[in-house]
C-alpha cells in the first residue's frame, strides 16, 4: 500500500459495498441519536432538580455526583459498567451500549443546561404564576423555551461524545454488536489498510460536521460565550 500511484475513489466504493460495515455505521448512528435524545431528556430534568434544590448542601452533593462520570477515566467507567450489566443480567450488546452511552452523556447535558437555568431570572416564573400558569405551563412555555439553547448544545455535545466514544463501548459491547470506533480499533490492530483510511476520513468528516453545527448553535445563542471549552 506504500506505492502511491494516484487518487482513486475505489476504497470508498469498496466501503459502501461492505454490508457488515454499513450495519455497524448504522448501529453507531442509531446508538448516538437515541443516547443523545434520552440523555438530553433526563439531563434537562436533572439540571432542573439541581437548580431547584433548596439546600446548598444538596445542590453541591448532586453536582459532585453529577461530575463523577465526567472526571473518571473511561477505563473505570467501562469496567464498572461491565460489572453492573453482568450483575443485572443485561446481555452485552445493543442495549448495554445504549444504556452506558446514555449514562455518560447525562452529566454533560446537565452541565450545558445548568448555566442557562441560573441565568434565568426567577421573576419570569413568578410572573407566569401570577398570570395563572399551571406548573406544567411554566415548565413548557417559560423554562423550556428559555433554556432551549442549552438543551440544543447539550444534545449535540452528547451526540459527539457518544459518536466518539471508544473506551466505554469497548468494554460493554459483546460479541455480536460493534460500533464504528470499536471496529476501527480491531482493524487498526491488524495494521494499516486503505479500507480504514477511507472509513477514518468519513468518521472525521462526520465529527467535524457535528462540531460545526454545535459551534454555530452555541455562537448564535451565547453572545457572551463560554469560550471554546468542552
Amino acid at each position: 500500500m506504500y506505492d502511491f500511484k494516484g487518487f482513486t475513489l475505489d476504497w470508498y466504493k469498496e466501503l459502501f459495498q461492505d454490508t457488515r460495515l454499513l450495519i455497524i455505521v448504522l448501529n453507531t448512528i442509531v446508538v448516538a441519536l437515541l443516547a443523545a435524545l434520552i440523555s438530553t431528556m433526563i439531563g434537562v430534568l436533572g439540571a432542573l432538580a439541581i437548580h431547584m434544590a433548596r439546600k446548598r448542601n444538596t445542590k453541591n452533593a448532586l453536582l459532585s455526583l453529577n461530575n463523577v462520570l465526567i472526571v473518571s477515566p473511561d477505563v473505570i467507567i467501562g469496567a464498572s459498567f461491565l460489572i453492573l450489566f453482568t450483575m443485572a443480567g443485561i446481555k452485552l450488546g445493543f442495549y448495554s451500549v445504549l444504556l452506558s452511552h446514555i449514562a455518560f452523556c447525562i452529566p454533560i447535558v446537565v452541565l450545558m443546561v445548568l448555566p442557562k437555568l441560573s441565568e434565568m431570572s426567577p421573576s419570569l416564573i413568578d410572573a407566569a404564576r401570577d398570570l395563572g400558569a399551571s406548573g406544567w405551563d411554566v415548565f413548557s412555555k417559560v423554562i423550556i423555551p428559555y433554556i432551549s439553547p442549552g438543551i440544543f448544545a447539550g444534545f449535540f455535545m452528547a451526540l459527539t461524545y457518544s459518536f466518539d466514544d471508544f473506551a466505554v463501548t469497548f468494554f460493554v459491547t459483546g460479541n455480536g454488536f460493534s460500533t464504528l470506533s470499536v471496529e476501527i480499533y480491531s482493524l487498526a490492530r491488524r495494521g494499516i489498510s486503505l479500507h480504514i483510511n477511507a472509513l477514518s476520513a468519513l468518521l472525521f468528516l462526520f465529527t467535524m460536521l457535528l462540531v460545526v453545527v454545535y459551534y454555530f448553535i452555541s455562537k448564535r445563542n451565547k453572545p457572551n460565550g463560554m469560550g471554546v471549552g468542552k
Partner: peptide
Amino acid sequence: WINLLLKAY
C-alpha cells in the same frame, strides 16, 4: 474534537 482512535491510527 477528532476521535482519539483516528489520531492514533
